[in-house]
Design a protein around this nucleic acid. Structure first.
Lengths: 207, 207
DNA sequence: CCATTGGCGGTACGATCGTATTGCATCAGT
DNA sequence: ACTGATGCAATACGATCGTACCGCCAATGG
């Protein structure tokens, strides 16, 4: 057997280069050649690891999803209790607009790609549904107010977080503004929890 | 002088073809040739009306903005009072996810284009700021609750509407779910207004 | 020591894109 | 009726893209 390399790692490495390119130049700027250059490899190597451009884009979408999930899981690592976890998840999504512009921007580009590619569309749907379920569970476990339906509230919170992330991305408001909005909303739907101005050190808010 | 045609109308016609293409096949599927075919004209004519592809895309972005504005203004036409107007505006944005998939999808594609093109980015910023100001004014005029800051609440509402529109677009929830969420939120921040289940005939909700 | 197998770079080619250029029909003004 | 500007179509061309293909290098097993 010849040299052994981590196939999956190489794929992810190249896919992340594609994501970077996608965020910098838009989806139109993502070409095999550019991806190869961005990744510091040859054009032939990209072919070696991906069956074609569609394969590369699909893999990039999956890496993107993983990247966002990682970001969120990092944020909730030191959260205690469902209410605090919920807050961290939402803030992590919002902060994508400031700290993780690449995944968010690439995500926008992939939305338009999901139109043409059913496979990517399915990935979006699956991811969105999963997040919705998790958030709904967190809402239900956080002792919501009487008039709060966890499922509907999860949609509201997820929508709010997504929309705020876009607002932050486009520079319409700052992360601290968005944080205040999320906290304000959470205080309204979760009486008793999060009555203080937030946990001691919200990760990354100051940046 | 030779034959007189409405220059602006022709441009908008072609730009809308580009928008349709953008929504159907994504930004990558928008080529001069495809746009010409979609618009039912020759490739040369597209060149005749646009200095280049960038010009076409920019014009499409402006047409897109106008299209959404028209949609919203149609929705608030028969609204009486600031609270009802506010509700109609938000619902119009949400319903973009169902009834006006083309502008919404194209909008997503253009977000990624705004990265590379400062002019389109400026267009986004200007549009977003304007909407924010209008919504903030509506909130302030609707008799909000004591703990509601119009500016922050406008960001929240706009973010919520945008996020919900995306959710509707991706099929995560229905328009009626989103409508209920918006109404629920409005009832919370606007005590006294909109205490009923909504105005008599919400335009387009049943579709 | 050598054959084999996979990692990897480089080149070639067909297709397609954006743009420049050319040609023709049409209508206003003299 | 002649002229010239304009609407519009068609063609031509250079650049670039995605992909196929070929060749080299390194490392492993016999």
């Amino acid at each position: 057997m010849p040299k052994q390399v981590d196939h999956a790692a190489r794929r992810e490495e190249i896919a992340q280069a594609a994501l970077r390119l996608c965020a910098r130049d838009g989806l139109a700027g993502v070409t095999i050649g550019q991806v190869a250059q961005e990744a510091g490899v040859s054009k032939g190597l990209v072919q070696h690891y991906f069956a074609g451009k569609a394969d590369l884009l699909r893999a990039s979408a999956q890496v993107l999803r993983g990247e966002i999930e990682r970001q969120v899981r990092d944020a909730v690592r030191d959260a205690r209790g469902p209410a605090e976890t919920l807050r961290c998840v939402l803030l992590a999504i919002v902060e994508l607009g400031a700290t993780a512009v690449v995944p968010l921007l690439a995500g926008h580009a992939f939305v338009s790609m999901a139109v043409a590619d059913p496979e990517i569309r399915a990935l979006y749907r699956a991811g969105g549904d999963g997040v919705h379920r998790e958030i709904a569970a967190l809402v239900a476990a956080s002792g919501p107010a009487g008039d709060v339906d966890p499922g509907a509230e999860a949609h509201a919170l997820l929508g709010l977080a997504r929309g705020l992330a876009d607002g932050v991305l486009l520079g319409e408001l700052g992360v601290d503004d968005a944080t205040a909005i999320v906290d304000h909303h959470l205080r309204r739907i979760l009486p008793g929890a999060l009555t203080r101005s937030g946990d001691p050190s919200p990760p990354g808010v100051s940046g």
